[in-house]
Design a protein around this nucleic acid. Structure first.
Lengths: 138, 138
DNA sequence: CGCCGATGTAACTGCAAGGGTTACCAAAAA
DNA sequence: TTTTTGGTAACCCTTGCAGTTACATCGGCG
C-alpha cells in the first residue's frame, strides 16, 4: 500500500485552516510551524489540496490558504485520495507473457479484490469529516 | 499508507505454492523465477510468512517451502498484514507538548477513525482466499 | 559417512521517493 | 513602490527496498 506521512500532514494542515476559518487566510509559515516542517513542504501539499478543491490560495501580501468548503463537507477520504497515490496497492513488474500462468494472470485476478479493498477504505474514511476532527480538538 | 510491492509478491509466491500443493516443497529459486526476482528476496519474504504460520520451510536437500494451511484457510488479509507494516497509516513526528492544540492532540483524535479504516481494509481483504486466487488461474 | 542442494542470514550496492532547504519569480495588498 | 505572500525549480540528504554475493548450516541421498 502506498504511503508517506503526507496524509497525516494534510489533515493537520486542514485542521489548522478549519480553526482559523472566517478570520482570513493562513500563511504557509504559520501552518508549517504547527506541523513542524518547512513552509515549502506545506505549499507543495496545498497545491495538491487545491487541485482537489479542498482549499484555495490567496496570493500577495497578507495572503495564504483557506478552506474551499465547509469543514463538514470535507471527509478524511477526500484528503487521503487527494494526497496519496491513486492506486493503493503497488504492483510488482507484471509479465503477461510469462510461461508461468501465475505470473501471467495474477494481475488480472487480483484486480477485483484490490479495488474492493480500496473502496472499503474510502467508505470508512468518508465517515469522518474535518469538522469532526477539529471540534474534537480543544 | 504503507507500501511496497511485497504484498503482491507474497500473494504471487503463495499462489505458486498452492499450485504445487501436495507435490512436495518448492525451492526459492523456482518461486523467484516465476516472480522475476532473486531467490534471496523470496527467502526473506518467506521468513515473514513463516512467522505468520502461512508457510513452513523444509531444510536440507530437496527442501523448499510449502503452505502451512489449506489454501482456503489463507486470506488476502492474512498475507497483507503478515508482510506489510503493522500500522497502515504513517504518522508524522508528533509533538504532544506543542503550544498548538492541533499538533498536540491530532494523533489521539485521529486514532479511532484510522483504526476503523484499517479494520475495513482487513475485512474486505479477508473475503478473498488464496484458493479463490489460485483457482482463477488456469 | 560425506556430498550436494537447499534454507538462513549478513553485508554490501544501487536506486528511487520523500522531505528539507535555498533561491528566485510573480502577484497583490499596503 | 515596497513588502509579504504563494509558486516552483533545483539541489542535497536520508531512508527503505530490491538485488546481489557470500557463506554457514542443515539434512536427504547415494
Amino acid at each position: 500500500m502506498l504511503s508517506s506521512s503526507r496524509f497525516i500532514v494534510a489533515v493537520h494542515a486542514l485542521s489548522v485552516l478549519a480553526r482559523f476559518s472566517g478570520r482570513g487566510p493562513v500563511c504557509s509559515a504559520t501552518v508549517a510551524e504547527s506541523v513542524h516542517t518547512n513552509p515549502v513542504v506545506i505549499r507543495r501539499l496545498m497545491g495538491e489540496l487545491e487541485k482537489a478543491r479542498l482549499v484555495r490560495s490567496v496570493a500577495g501580501r497578507s495572503g495564504g490558504f483557506e478552506l474551499d468548503r465547509q469543514a463538514d463537507q470535507i471527509t478524511l477520504a477526500d484528503v487521503y485520495f487527494a494526497v496519496e497515490d491513486e492506486n493503493v496497492f503497488r504492483m510488482h513488474k507484471a509479465d503477461p507473457n510469462s510461461r508461468c500462468p501465475v505470473a501471467a494472470q495474477l494481475g488480472k485476478v487480483l484486480h477485483g479484490p484490490l479495488r474492493a479493498a480500496e473502496c472499503a477504505l474510502h467508505t470508512s474514511l468518508a465517515k469522518t469529516t474535518l469538522r469532526d476532527v477539529s471540534t474534537a480538538i480543544v
